[in-house]
Nucleic acid binder design. Structure first.
Lengths: 204, 204, 204, 204
DNA sequence: GATGAATGAGAGTTCATTCAT
DNA sequence: TATGAATGAACTCTCATTCAT
């Protein structure tokens, strides 16, 4: 019993690593089983197919993440608090879950439907309601004259872009600018820079 | 002669499409040949291997792009002009070359070395010098008190993030916010939003 | 367990047959798998590549043969005994292992290094020492005035030529002289003829 | 005109080299055309197929060889002269036409019918009559008490084996005995050794 | 639950051969 | 004659998946 739980967990972890490194198509079931130190047939015993394993890895990861983010997004009522807290939480989370970010970032581009389904399944109705609520909240901030960005979608994209991009594009940025990205020092700088830019740039 | 030039070009175009849609591992030589309407063996006749074809597709694409961007980055002397022109050029370019962006964005994450090599090969010494010069220029702006961001790397990452992210993450954003991204209207809004944010947020 | 051992053995046998009939380049993995009555993929499961399978078939065959020959060559102390026993053993062996002989004979001509490596690996140090010891022994026989051939290398080549050639060139000889070669009767005649020729021609 | 003759000749020469190095299956039309410094399509223009080119290369080679050997075999009337002259001519010839020997030796083992056909076509009726006449001649020598070998086939095989084997098996012998084979010195030694062995061993 | 062996459907690649010029 | 481009069949090898134990 315990052992099997262990096995399943090990597969999910190994799957996350492999899928995030090589994408769906580039991932080999063989490699996953080796990384998980179990027999390849067990992958199919537990997850029945590559596609399904992928799906479950995704769902598993999404499920462990969503709650941490949801609260800040939904509960925070002032734009100032929103712009101050979100970058810290986002960036902190992304740097601690690079595998997950890579995997999602990756496959959202080509396997949109699967990733979307994973999100929907993992967070249920909120998948549709959450964003809508946030957008509405932002809209109200604009109506009240608290922020300068009139389009709530642009408002959100601005935030997410600044928080996420550097950690997805890390290798390319490191290559181009010839500097290390991802160490503690960089992360602190990044958080500060993003908060400054957002607050100075979008608050009234 | 004419025929052959056509063929090679057709392969490169088909390759760009396929690689950008499915990534390296997910791309099938078969599909490329079908898209290019040529015999599969021709792929190997001209490019000798999948890996090499990939490399050449990348180099080909990079080579056609770089010059267009270089000038703005290197020539613009005032931070205001920089922050006004760059987003327009970047976003305009990215939306017109989504395949290329997808392909590069994609593989920079896992095939960093190959992509890096393609860039280096395509733009030569400037690959290293260009970024350095830009960073120095930004540093001087800060020293002169013209901008509020003290770290030139963060300065650049902020710009690139805001311009690029939405177009890489387009499917995920469309799914989450349930809105179309990429049409002319969105693009114009995006450009405005980014310029506003950058100018208001980083100029003094 | 039993099943697998069987399979590997079957592949090696089928490989020996095919390689000896068609040479390395002319052999098809498909045919080997059919002959071995297993799925083609198993060839790669067990041997990972055609080249490696070839190598292992060779090594396997060499390993099973060497010990039988070594003793006679090294232990026999009188030239008379040497020339009497060697042909019988050699010819007897070659006729019973025509596949092996063909394969080795064949590829020693063009794939020398691989065959050489197989021998070296199969018989270890003796690959170098064995021949040297034999040549020295022959040299002493000449010094003692027991044989008429002064060059030990020619001495050995004479023996090997007479024993081996007919069985390598069997098809050509059958075609030219329009006679069957290889049946029991022929073999007995051949052994006698060779022994006679060698003893009468090289003993003093 | 002249040029075409040149081309055809060049193809035949290149073919001989390639076929003798790699065997029929291992030979690439591409490589032949490169070696001959002509366009690959010309191979088919002149010889219509690989098999046919192979056939013609063989015939061409056989045709240039046969006459030189025929005379000695058929004309020599005394066994002593026979055993003295044959090795010299044979070995001399084989060392000067190693490519041909390799090619024939090679493919006689697996492509017997093709090689046989080439011989028959090249030397016509003599292909069957020649050997018969020789065997009869040898039989008579035995009846007259001039030689000790009663079986004429063994008699011939003994000769051919001693003359040919070393040059076919050259790489294997060089590997095993760690000595160079094929230089002028070796050849002279070989001829002497063979003549001695044959005369001492088969003459009465 | 767990394992090693087995399978079948492709994947990339090669190669003799043909076509258009 | 001569060439570079094109073709289709075949080949080696891979990989998700299943079977037997």
């Amino acid at each position: 019993m315990i052992r099997s739980k262990n096995t399943k967990e090990r597969i999910l972890n190994a799957g996350l690593k492999e899928f995030s490194f090589h994408g769906y198509a580039g991932t080999r079931m063989d490699k996953i089983s080796i990384r998980a130190k179990i027999n390849k047939a067990m992958l199919f015993y537990y997850f029945s197919s590559k596609e399904n394993l992928y799906h479950e890895v995704l769902t598993h990861a999404v499920r462990s993440i969503i709650p941490k983010i949801r609260n800040i997004i939904l509960l925070e009522q002032s734009p100032e608090g929103f712009l101050e807290k979100l970058p810290e939480v986002y960036i902190g989370f992304f740097t601690k879950n690079q595998d997950f970010v890579k995997m999602v970032a990756f496959d959202f581009v080509q396997k949109t439907d699967i990733v979307k389904a994973a999100f929907e399944q993992a967070i249920g109705k909120e998948f549709h309601q959450g964003p809508r609520l946030v957008l509405k909240k932002i809209e109200k901030w604009y109506e009240k004259g608290e922020i300068s960005e009139s389009d709530p979608l642009q408002f959100m994209i601005n935030i997410v872009s600044l928080c996420l991009f550097a950690f997805i594009a890390r290798p390319i940025l490191e290559a181009i600018f010839n500097q290390k990205i991802g160490d503690e020092q960089f992360i602190q700088k990044r958080i500060k820079s993003v908060i400054n830019l957002l607050k100075q740039g979008m608050l009234k």
